[in-house]
Simulated scan of single mutants.
Amino acid sequence: MTACQTPATLGKKDPERATQVRTQLAAEYIKAGDLDSAKRALDQALEINSRDSAANMMMGILLQQEGSKVSLSKADAYFKRAISADPKNAQARNNYGTYLYKVERYNDAIEQLNIAGTTLGYDQRYQALENAGRIYLKLGNVTEAEKSFKQALQANRESLISMLELAEIFYLKQQTADATQLYEQFVRGVGQKSQGARALWIGIRLARANSDKMGMQVLVNQLRALFPESPEYQRYLQLQYSTEAVWK
């Protein structure tokens, strides 16, 4: 026979370990979509140590994933508590930045993502920089977006998102050679047949800019076959006879 350990008894025995175990368990529940079990595990973790940075961060993630207005409003306090408990927790800042983007607090999101993105040794800092770049694009700040995507590629040379975003930025700036190089690198990474509608549209415009009629037609056919209702294909139909130097 074995005795059942409650959160309180395990917490007294090794509170740090007990909090960690429950937080990790909650993460697995969240991945599996079992938000109720995740909430119970995190309640136990925070009962043991209400100031634990990882547990507070995970509660913020849980509430964000649940997605209701009430949960989203509560998530903010947990992310703040996670960062307050450990200002060097780059993962918490990255997740908080993602949350702030979701609730359309764009400038606050950029602040958190840039801190995470410049934390050397943080293995996901390139993702924080990618997200910052996307927000800059949304705000119309192409200069800062380009800078963020370049930094993301420096942090991770296989950052496919940054390759594609920079390819389009360079294309629109008529830096065709640089854009083509990044697009081709992106295609090698994902595979010719695994491109989404947006990637194909970028490829079509680059092929046109490079006077590659055959390559352009191959991509047009692929876009038509796979994404006939996409905004990208509809845009192609609008512009197919246009003589403008840069299709946007």
Rank of each mutant, 00 (worst) to 15 (best):
S71G: 00
L137K: 06
V187L: 02
V21N: 08
R208C: 05
L172A: 04
G121K: 01
T2V: 14
A197R: 01
D52P: 05
A90E: 10
E229G: 06
L113T: 02
K173A: 15
N131F: 10
T19D: 05
F186G: 06
Y29V: 06
A116Q: 01
K138P: 03
V218S: 11
T119P: 02
D34W: 06
K248M: 13
D43V: 09
N210K: 14
N89M: 11
T243P: 04
G203L: 03
L100I: 07
Q240F: 09
D14M: 07
E146A: 08
E168K: 03
Y183T: 09
M163T: 08
D34V: 03
E16K: 13
A109S: 15
Y122S: 02
P231I: 03
T119M: 09
Y136N: 02
L46G: 02
D123W: 12
G203S: 05
E144G: 03
S68E: 03
A128I: 11
Q44V: 08
Q112C: 10
L166V: 12
L63R: 05
T9G: 05
S162E: 07
A45N: 00
A197S: 12
E168C: 05
A145D: 00
F170K: 13
P87F: 10
A92N: 07
T98R: 10
K12L: 11
D34A: 08
R224S: 12
A167Y: 08
Q217E: 13
G140V: 11
Q240D: 08
Q240K: 15
A18V: 10
Y29G: 02
E66G: 12
V21C: 07
P87I: 12
L164N: 06
P7M: 13
V190F: 09
K193Y: 14
I161V: 15
N49E: 00
R235Q: 15
A209N: 00
V190S: 10
Q44G: 13
V190H: 04
Y183I: 09
L153F: 03
